[in-house]
Amino acid sequence: MNIEIKVLELLEQNPKLSAEEIAIMLNEKKEEIEKVIKKLEDEKVIVKYHTIVNWEKTEKEVVEAIIEVKVTPQRGVGYDAIAKRIYKFPEVKAVYLLSGNYDLHVIVEGKTMKDIAHFVGSKLAPLEYVLSTATHFIMKKYKDAGVILEDGEKDDREVITP
Results as ranks from 00 to 15, higher is better:
Glu91Ala: 10
Thr112Pro: 10
Asp42Cys: 00
Asp42Thr: 09
Ile52Asn: 12
Pro162Thr: 12
Gly152Gln: 08
Glu34Ser: 11
His118Gly: 09
His136Glu: 03
Ala19Arg: 08
Thr72Gly: 02
Ile3Val: 14
Val7Tyr: 04
Ile67Thr: 01
Gly121Phe: 09
Thr72Tyr: 09
Asn2Leu: 10
Asp156Pro: 05
Leu11Trp: 11
Pro73Leu: 00
Val92Gly: 10
Gly78Asp: 07
Ala23Met: 01
Met113Gly: 15
Leu124Trp: 08
Val159Asp: 05
Glu4Ala: 09
Glu41Val: 05
Tyr102His: 11
Ala83Leu: 07
Met1Tyr: 12
Asp144Lys: 10
Gly152Ile: 03
Glu61Leu: 02
Glu41Gly: 03
Ala125Asn: 13
Glu31Tyr: 01
Val36Arg: 02
Val130Glu: 02
Ile160Lys: 15
Ile67Tyr: 03
Gly110Phe: 12
Ser122Met: 01
Ile82Leu: 05
Ser18Glu: 04
His50Asp: 11
Ala145Phe: 13
Val77Ser: 14
Lys6His: 14
Ile24Phe: 14
Glu12Gln: 15
Asp155Pro: 04
Ile46Ser: 06
Lys88Ser: 15
Glu21Leu: 00
Tyr96Ser: 09
Glu32Phe: 11
Asn54Asp: 10
Val53Thr: 05
Val92Pro: 07
Ile66Leu: 11
Ile33Asp: 01
Lys30Glu: 08
Met139Phe: 12
Thr135Leu: 05
Thr51Glu: 12
Lys88Cys: 07
Lys141Trp: 02
Ile22Lys: 03
Thr58Cys: 02
Ile33Tyr: 01
Phe137Arg: 09
Glu4Tyr: 04
Ile160Thr: 09
Glu68Ile: 00
Lys140Val: 01
Ala23Asp: 03
Met113Cys: 13
Ala117Pro: 13
Val62Met: 02
Ile116Tyr: 03
Ala125Cys: 07
Glu64Phe: 05
Glu41Tyr: 00
Glu109Val: 07
Ile37Asn: 01
Pro126Gln: 09
Glu153Leu: 09
